[in-house]
Design a protein around this nucleic acid. Structure first.
Lengths: 263, 263
DNA sequence: GCTTGCAAAATGTGATCACATTATGCGCTT
DNA sequence: AAGCGCATAATGTGATCACATTTTGCAAGC
C-alpha cells in the first residue's frame, strides 16, 4: 500500500447554475452511498479538490455538510474519514432504518395515488431486470429509489432526511456487502409491499418494509465483515501537549450536552 | 418594524482551542433550540458575523452545518432562514420524536446504571425547582438534558443525532409556546419514566416517554399558533430570467432522488 | 533492530477579496 | 396615487493566501 489509495470520484453532470459545492456534495454522496469509499478511508480537502479539479472551498463546504449528516466522521485532530463499522453500529443502523421507515411508510400510505403506485411497480421491474443482468450497483440504487418514492408520497415529510442520513451511514458497508455475499435471490419483498399498498393495509406494509430491510442488509450482521471495537488509527484523543485542543476529556453525554448548549 | 430586527445572539464561553466555527455553531444552535430566532427569521452571513464579532468564514461554516441538520432552511435564492411551522410539519415532528425517542429509550434501558439513574433524578429535581421558580428556559433546557442523559446510556447510538435534529426543528416554536400557553403543570411524566427504569420495564418506559413528549408539546398542536400552509416571502421558485438557477422545476421525489445520486 | 528527535511536507482554519446574482429604494411615468 | 424601471446596496459563492498544528520521513543514537 505504498501508493496513495485515492479513490477516484466520478463526477455527475453539473446542473446549470448549480453551486460547485453542491455538485461536489452530490458526487461525494453518491460515492459514499454506493460504497466507493472504503470504511476508514481518510479524506482531505486538498486531495479531493485536486482530484475533482475544483478549488478547496467547495470541497470544504461539501465535507462539512457530509459530516453534519453523519456520512463522514470528524476526528478530534480535525481530520475527516469514512466511519468504520462495528457490530454495535451495524445493529443500531438496522434498527434505526426499520424504526424510521416502517413509520414513514405507514404515514405515506394514505397519500399514494395510482400514478405513484405505477411508478413503484416500474422501479421494482427495473430492480429485477438489473438483478438478472448482474448489475448490483443499479440494484442498490433503484432499491433506495423505491423506498424514497414510497415515503415521499407524503410531501415535506420530516422522516425522509432522517432516513437518508441512515442510508448514508450504511453506505460504506454496501460495497463490501455486495462483493462478499452470494446473491441469495430472496423473496421479493417489494411485491408484498406493493400488494399491501394496493390493499391499503398498514400492518402488512410495515411487515413488508421491515422484511425488505432485513433481507437486504440484515443477514450481513453475522458475516465476518464487521470489526469488533476498532479504536481508530487517528485516535479520538490526542496524546501530547496540544494547546490547540486543551478541552478536557468529557463523557459522551457531557459532550453532547455542551454542544447542544444545555449549560 | 423599520429597524432591522436582528436577534442578539448571546455567545457562550469559547473553549480553549475550540475552532471559531464550532463556537459560532454552538451559539446559534442554542439560540435556535430555545426559540430565540422566531420562525421565518432571515439570517445572513455578514449580519451574524458582525453581531458576533467574527469573520464571515466561521459563520458560513456554522450555517451550512445548521442547514444540513435541518435547523435552518435554505431557500432557492440561496438565502437562509428559520423554518416556519405548519400544522402538518408540527404533526410530523411530534410523530418523529415519539417514534425515535421511545425506541432510543428502550434500547438504552438495559445499559442504565445506578450512577446514571441518580443523575436523571437530579435533573428532574432541577426541572421541578426551575418550574417552581418560573424559569421556563431552564425547564426546557433541563428537559432536553433529561432525555439526552437517558438515551446516551447507550454509547455511540445512531439515534441521538437523529433525535437532536428533530429537537432543533421544534426549537423555533418553543418560545412562542412558552409565552402563550398557560403553565398547566401536568403530571410529572419523568417520575413515571424513572420508575419504569428502576423496574426495568420497557413497555412502561415507552409509555412514559411518549406521554412526556405529548404533554410537553403535543397540546400546542391545537392552539392558533400554527400557520396553515405558508408560502414563504422568499418564494420557493424565483420568477424572472435567472441564468444562475436554470434547473427545471422538479417534484420533491425527483429532487431528492437527484440529490441522492440515484440516476 | 528499534526507538527517539528533528526537519519538511501536509492539513485544517480563518481572513480577505472579486464577482455574479438578488434584494431594496427611489424617482419617473401614466 | 399606484405601478414600473433602474441604480445602488446587500448577499452568497468561490478563490487565494497566511498561519498554527499535525503528520510524515529520515537520520542519529541506544
Amino acid at each position: 500500500m505504498a501508493e496513495s489509495p485515492r479513490p477516484t470520484v466520478t463526477m455527475p453532470d453539473r446542473d446549470p447554475g448549480e453551486p460547485i459545492h453542491q455538485w461536489v456534495f452530490r458526487a461525494l454522496r453518491r460515492a459514499i452511498m454506493t460504497g466507493h469509499f472504503p470504511p476508514g478511508q481518510a479524506v482531505t480537502i486538498r486531495g479531493l479538490a485536486e482530484s475533482m479539479n475544483v478549488s478547496a472551498m467547495p470541497v470544504r463546504d461539501a465535507l462539512r455538510r457530509l459530516v453534519a449528516e453523519r456520512a463522514l466522521e470528524l476526528l478530534d485532530n480535525r481530520r475527516v474519514r469514512v466511519p468504520s463499522m462495528t457490530t454495535e453500529r451495524f445493529d443500531e443502523l438496522l434498527t434505526a432504518r426499520i424504526t424510521l421507515e416502517t413509520e414513514a411508510a405507514t404515514r405515506a400510505l394514505p397519500l399514494i395515488d395510482d400514478t405513484r403506485l405505477r411508478e413503484l411497480h416500474a422501479i421494482d421491474d427495473r430492480i429485477n431486470r438489473a438483478d438478472a443482468a448482474g448489475a448490483p450497483d443499479t440494484v442498490v440504487e433503484q432499491n433506495f429509489l423505491f423506498h424514497l418514492t414510497l415515503y415521499t408520497a407524503r410531501p415535506g415529510s420530516i422522516f425522509v432526511p432522517l432516513i437518508e442520513s441512515v442510508w448514508l451511514q450504511t453506505g460504506p458497508f454496501m460495497r463490501v456487502a455486495l462483493e462478499e455475499t452470494p446473491s441469495k435471490d430472496p423473496i421479493d419483498r417489494h411485491i408484498e409491499a406493493l400488494a399491501a399498498i394496493a390493499d391499503r393495509d398498514p400492518a402488512a406494509l410495515r411487515r413488508a418494509i421491515e422484511a425488505d430491510i432485513r433481507d437486504g442488509i440484515g443477514h450481513l450482521g453475522n458475516t465476518g465483515l464487521l470489526v469488533r471495537k476498532q479504536r481508530p488509527p487517528g485516535r479520538l484523543l490526542s496524546p501530547g501537549r496540544s494547546p490547540r485542543r486543551a478541552a478536557k476529556i468529557a463523557s459522551e453525554t457531557t459532550r453532547n450536552a455542551r454542544e447542544a448548549g444545555l449549560t
